[in-house]
Design a protein around this nucleic acid. Sequence first.
DNA 1: ATTTCTCCTTGAACCGTTTTAAGCAGATAT
DNA 2: ATATCTGCTTAAAACGGTTCAAGGAGAAAT
Lengths: 345, 345
Amino acid sequence: MASIRDVAKEAGVSLGTVSNAINRPEILAPRTLRKVQKVIDEMGFVPNASARNLRAGRNRVIGLVVPDISNPFFTDLAKGVNDAAFGAKYVVILCNTDESSEKESQYLDVLAAQNVEGILITPARDTNRALAAVAEKGIRLALVDRPAHGLQACSVAVNDSYGGSLALTHLYELGHRNILLLTGKEDIPQVADRNSGIREALAKIPASERPQITEIRLDSMSAHNAFEAIKKQIPIGIDFTGIICGNDLIALGAIRAFREKNIAVPEEVSVIGYDDIDFADSANVPLTSISQPAYELGYAAAELIISECENPERHVHQRIEFQPRLIVRSSTAPTKSHRATLKIS
Amino acid sequence: MASIRDVAKEAGVSLGTVSNAINRPEILAPRTLRKVQKVIDEMGFVPNASARNLRAGRNRVIGLVVPDISNPFFTDLAKGVNDAAFGAKYVVILCNTDESSEKESQYLDVLAAQNVEGILITPARDTNRALAAVAEKGIRLALVDRPAHGLQACSVAVNDSYGGSLALTHLYELGHRNILLLTGKEDIPQVADRNSGIREALAKIPASERPQITEIRLDSMSAHNAFEAIKKQIPIGIDFTGIICGNDLIALGAIRAFREKNIAVPEEVSVIGYDDIDFADSANVPLTSISQPAYELGYAAAELIISECENPERHVHQRIEFQPRLIVRSSTAPTKSHRATLKIS
DNA sequence: ATTTCTCCTTGAACCGTTTTAAGCAGATAT
DNA sequence: ATATCTGCTTAAAACGGTTCAAGGAGAAAT
């Protein structure tokens, strides 16, 4: 591997001149520049990033930490991050934590050791101890899909509370009065926020009409887990006509379980997902869902952190909030009694 | 940001001792070690990776270059890569090329500049000029989901030719005699290999029974493109009863287009996908597909390249080949005439 | 011919580690 | 008391760049 010294010797100039040829070509005499350029090309010289970073204290690397890259929501988000980074000549280290706090903090250590300039993270849990530690080390942080509670950092989020209320209101208006919440652990911030949105929406409904809520918390927000949960719970005979799912994968898993049990969706049970992943539309029963702009979320977050890295002194932390939207497809429908009511009125 | 010097001064020992405390704790006197450890913890000292890499010539970073991270096949693959890397304390830079050769070679440059130890790549096109250039720079390379034609590198692949023949044979045995191939550009190696597998399988069928093949090549192997293509082509009246798709996304897009046109799948048209993504099972019409072990592919590739990085002199390039499997679900069925034939016999 | 000015180029210091040879105690052997 | 050994610790030399003060060469001015 050629070094800048080899190039200098070959071109008959000094070390510093080669460096200038690379970084500030405009200050060189044109023929010197040409000479050096030629040698660089011939030797296929690539500057050593480590040496460069060591001196400059920057490396154009950011980390992205997500709980589940298999979830198309995060895949799209990652794509947004990557595209924004690519445009700014940054590079992204992808870290997938499988929703595990432990893996998350290990990854944070690795990223710190790699001296990344900034970290984009969707924390798995609400504890930000590990995060605070990272921030203390002087690594810039931005929170994705979640506001920066107390932390000195930028954040890009979707209004989860509003998303929760959208879902509940939709089912309520279709006449559902017994609703199952199929979500993840309450210490996942998104889950907590949506639940509080649901509760707020409930509070606005006259007590006589207020739907009954049951909640099942899955260990992991995957299709497989949802499938198993529904298969086990149904015989116990929880009585509900609508389900609000923590994400679309859960909804798909649930629908698959219903199909196996010959329970018709949406005729007997309405199911509403969350995220509006691409597949929602091609699903077995096209999914009613709450849409979140995942790609834009990622893109915006990357832009924020990169601008902070490029211009630390001028930077002020900001908080960007996107609004979720309800996308109605075929997995939700009015309850039978509600259909009757509609006819009468 | 604390440096090793600060720690040394604070602990009242020399620079080298601190370094030893970090890298070879066993050679220090126990009380010296304890003393240094304490200061390290107190100061929250993290060794600077750039300096370390500069000295060691290694950085425990590998690059992963894929054509479309939104495709669950590659997502799973990336997950495999990440998991294997994490276990070996490596870190992965994810590069998404959108199937563009140009973006691919730009990313290769960026990775070279970052001095990654190795690159895992699923090349977008068959040209390996950019790849050869990378190999010349001394960056280790491994090819994923594609054999290393002539290139000095490891490769991990699935037998695409066999996969193609599986698909064709399945449709043939169901009685299909007019088959549409809905694939990507021929210069995508996987596409070419599967096509050649299809041709080989065709050659083995008696000429009188040999299915007629029509081929449509999509610019990009996405659901959206397939949807548009089917919508446009159908009125032209190509006559076929079965489709072999380049991947599951294409199959889903095609099925969506058929649904819009009220053409029943599989009653009127059989559709077979490729990859067997998780979602295939929950699709509108559960998808018959050719399963590829994406996660294992990624995991194996990462293991190969990491072992090469850790032990360059002992390493010999290898080629791992996985076998695809046919997964029959509901999107394929016998043709009407074939059903009749079956009854008779 | 000498001075002044301008424009490039150069050499050296530095970034934060790892590594190795040399050094220094204290313990053991003579 | 001196020599030998053992077990840690240390100082200094890399690693491959960037940056900046200082130097040199040639042109223009006197």
